[in-house]
Amino acid sequence: MIQALTNLFWILIFPGFVFTLAVGLVAAWLVRKVSALVQYRVGPPVYQPAADVMKLLGKEILIPQDAQRAVFVAAPLIGLSGVLLLSTVLWLALAQREFVGDIIVAIYVMVLPSLALILGSSASSSPHAAIGAGREMKLVLSYELPLLLAFVVVIIKTSGALEAGEQLSLVAIAQHTPVLSISGMLAFIVALLCVQAKLGFVPFDIAESESEVASGVMIEYSGALLALWKLMQTLMLVALPLFLVTVFLGGIGTSVASVLGGVGKYVLVLVLVILIKNTNPRVRIDQAMRFFWFYCGTALLAAVVLATLGNYYGVGWL
């Protein structure tokens, strides 16, 4: 009984939903504040993202006449639950509970938000949303393969040091820091760019382009449903960098020192994301595809070869 309650507490409050949400809101504020400072503006107050979401929850929900209602309403829920699942898996793995969260599960769950976006915008039957959905789909196609390859590199890197049957376990992978090698570094950089695309940030905000016109995937959404999308994005700001931290940077431990270190790693990844967002112009969808498939793909193939060689000859830094 007590065990069940603790688990519930873990999942819902700390470090589950509520905690993730709090971190996400702060992260979202950081994104806007830093962007404003770059443009010589003051930027919003710290409670701004929370206020935005709260306000949207209190507003009316309009569903377009021609929309497929069930899918239209279900899509943001699917997206949100996808991210929640991901963050829970991550937290449990990080806190080294007895949980056999495996990296494949995480990778599959990570696709859910993008799929939900495509579903939702296709269901809203607006030409703008249709364009957005088409772009999102192409974007997913372009970054999903490099991301997978990046994880393959990690699996190769860590497999030598792990016991049989543990190679795919997130808990086990979190014990290692594959970024401290050439192949790991390459994989990390590519994965970071993929995360940028997953978050829908410049230079890969092709599907949304919120800064100019919200004629993107969410154009027909309003009220609480829009709030769900915003929440999903907020939670992704926590989950995705955290995933990178877990897989590449050795995770967050349980001792005080390693928690502090872990927070530092998370902030580092987040700041990297924000900086990339603010110093780059938007690319076109075909440029993004070429970038991910050709450049990132080549780099990762090299990384896979390096990692295999390193494993075979026992050279850690390759």
């Binding site: 806007r32 404003a36 503006r41 003051v42 930027g43 919003p44 107050p45 701004q48 206020a51 935005d52 309009l62 919120e210 100019e212 016109v213 919200a214 004629s215 969410m218 154009i219 027909e220 959404y221 309003s222 829009l226």
Partner: peptide
């Protein structure tokens, strides 16, 4: 003037 200070934001869709 930077109205983002007050949480005011221009959006591109009336639904938002």
């Amino acid at each position: 003037f930077d109205v983002e200070r007050f949480g005011i934001k221009l959006v591109g869709s009336p639904r938002h």
